[in-house]
Design a binder for these strands. Structure first.
Lengths: 187, 187
DNA sequence: TCGGAAGTGGAGACAGCCTCCGTTTCATCG
DNA sequence: CGATGAAACGGAGGCTGTCTCCACTTCCGA
């Protein structure tokens, strides 16, 4: 996907330092409370360097979560290959909620960035959507799921789950949404 | 609800001017693209005056939408009084989507403010949630709806619909979500 | 009509974001 | 193993939007 990138040794080192610190900050849930410039200082590089590697906050978030989103998509593919169509979708949605539950950082990130209409995040976001679309399409073909409601609606519901990450009773409500969606999808 | 507020004549005039201009800007969908200070200039008052009346962007949004949210809640109450329990909930959710469709401004506002974790909006938001909770509770008592999924999940789904306001196929997907929720809720 | 309380408004302090460019580090080549 | 140009560094400073502060104006009750 990415072409021609003979990155110099020091450049690579700095990039990794930035990413490492960013991951740390993400896990602490402080990503959006921190001045962007401070990442640089925290990671021991200049602000110019930070901006060269990651032109925006979103770009940094994208880089941090790229692997994790990829893993999620991979999981979707595996589920699709091993489970009956209907169950694969259900399992994936449950897994998604589980993941968001243990990685609050991602939930908040996705919600904030999508809310901000970020384009940078488009790649990961689209990848996830593609995974869901595939799962739904397969389930429809297998006749396990109605065909008059698209995958977009499912995405929207997921979106809501992510966006509402700060509700006190998040986990229970998220499970409720998934239950409604799955039961609603059954023909 | 609000106590002791003998507002002076000129203060009231300015407040109204601000609100009028804010409504106009909202309807044009430019609320978040505009420097906050410029509201002042646009409405013909100083920035100090703006900040005295509405300390934050959110406060202004809250004021602008206070009436509309109240109207929505009123509609919920009326539906609840005139329709069978199950249908009232369905009608309200459909009406909600309709409303958001013709008032994109509100959708974006709610999404952005909730995404930002604003407390200012809490009142209107809570009022809406209360309306939904009542509708669901009534429907559950009437046996039209399952009792193992709370109103919170419905709220979350609505939240998602609002948060995803910028999806190209919004209307269809929003209707899809509502369909899933309603079918999922049926016992 | 007058006093002071309430309200006004806009200059400027402040906080993040980002750019620009002189300096440093790397890798290649004779 | 220098030398040389390209690549990368980094942080001072400019910019943009937010918000405060207070000298001035307007209102209203006595």
């Amino acid at each position: 996907m990415n072409a021609a990138k003979p990155l110099r040794a020091d450049a690579l080192r700095n990039r990794e330092a930035l990413l490492a610190k960013a991951r740390e900050v993400f896990d602490a849930g402080e990503f959006f409370d921190l001045r962007f410039d401070d990442f640089a200082r925290l990671a021991g590089v200049g602000t110019g360097t930070l901006y060269r590697h990651f032109p925006t906050r979103e770009a940094l978030a994208e880089a941090v979560y790229h692997d994790q989103v990829a893993a999620l998509c991979e999981r979707a593919r595996r589920l699709q290959a091993t489970l009956p169509a209907g169950e694969a979708l259900a399992a994936f949605l449950r897994a998604m909620v589980d993941y968001l539950h243990t990685h609050r950082g991602l939930a908040r990130t996705l919600a904030t960035l999508m809310g901000a209409g970020s384009d940078t995040l488009a790649e990961g976001s689209r990848a996830l959507e593609q995974a869901v679309t595939d799962l739904v399409a397969t389930a429809v073909q297998a006749g396990a799921v109605r065909d008059d409601v698209g995958a977009g609606a499912v995405m929207m519901a997921l979106h809501g789950i992510g966006a509402a990450h700060d509700r006190p009773d998040w986990r229970a409500e998220a499970d409720g949404v998934i239950t409604l969606v799955l039961d609603g999808l059954r023909r």
